[in-house]
Design a binder for these strands. Structure first.
Lengths: 181, 181
DNA sequence: GGCCATTATGCAACGAGTTGCACAGCAACG
DNA sequence: CGTTGCTGTGCAACTCGTTGCATAATGGCC
């Protein structure tokens, strides 16, 4: 279970409520570790009872109270311990690769539909790459005055950018191959 | 649930027993869709009762009978339908990226341990890249006489190679960044 | 005035994936 | 001759993740 650890990292970077965490998982951290708000609330509750995080109740008129979480000392210890453990082999689930191999067993219409899907998928990832590049320009322009945390966020973002560029090149290769069949 | 579809693709490429499928998932297809033998047996059983695959009993003296599965007509139909459906957004789970961002909240010893882990991880993926490249040389040397299925397997393999190359470059970037902190 | 999106939290049920174990015989190594 | 490893199938328990729904108030749109 690494969702705990992703939450700890996110809360150390910036404390926040379950809802705020869920939004961050949609945008920033979630590019590398996805989670829905239901998962986050459930895990936060367990982490709170385990003493890894504490909540500060913030009253809001009208709306339900916001509970802003931050990582505790024991939370930091758990994270440090996890950082020392070996990286688990990843469970790769690349649906598109399976579909491409499956295209050998369908007809022309099916292959044409797949080409359309790949094009849509490509457009999505092109947009994502632009988001990354804009984020880089916005947050990491001044390479001089970055602290350790920012430098590490930047190198992870560079990874995302490299991945998206590689993916776009490969998708072009896929499209050429599918069209030539 | 796409494990069904990955199994259908694999069985269309080549019929085989549950055990054989499990080994293929370790080696070939499993680079893009992981599954353990228990999952495979369970899903195969359901697929059999749904009529997507049929088993041929092959008696073997001594050992338990082998049940060789192949995809049926309805199985092919289910696959074709799935190919036409939109690619689901992937649930990315990149543990290493989370650990790297977490490195901002640990001490020098913890960071040194992470560097060691990244180096180990890098060596693993370097070996994997070599496996891919050797597989490419072995199976796709003669680019002329490839049928559709082989061309599609090749483009997926090229994707794996591109991914591993990109990953190695990025890991070097990560190591430089961690060491410079 | 009614509808919908957003902020904010949470339960319940289901489906999928993981882990541990069991059985069974063969082949190869030392 | 015993141990280990490989082929081959499978159950049971558990954890994790997903989906659907519920509540509650605010603000904006038509």
């Amino acid at each position: 279970m690494a969702l705990e650890h992703a939450i700890l990292v996110s809360l150390l970077e910036q404390p926040g409520s379950g809802y705020e965490l869920a939004r961050r998982f949609e945008r920033s951290i979630g590019r590398f570790w996805t989670a829905t708000h239901q998962q986050i609330y459930r895990v936060l509750k367990r982490m709170e009872s385990d003493g890894l995080v504490v909540a500060e109740e913030i009253g809001q008129d009208g709306r339900p109270d916001k509970r802003s979480f931050s990582a505790t000392g024991p939370g930091k210890d758990v994270l440090a311990e996890w950082l020392r453990a070996p990286v688990q082999p990843e469970a790769v689930r690349h649906e598109l690769a399976v579909k491409i191999r499956g295209a050998a067993f369908t007809d022309d219409a099916g292959r044409a539909a797949l080409i359309g899907e790949v094009e849509r998928y490509r457009a999505e990832h092109e947009a994502l790459l632009l988001t990354y590049i804009n984020g880089e320009k916005r947050d990491f322009l001044d390479l001089g005055g970055l602290d350790a945390g920012q430098q590490l966020q930047h190198v992870v973002l560079r990874g995302g950018i490299a991945y998206e560029r590689m993916l776009l090149d490969w998708l072009d290769d896929v499209l050429r191959t599918l069209r030539a069949l």
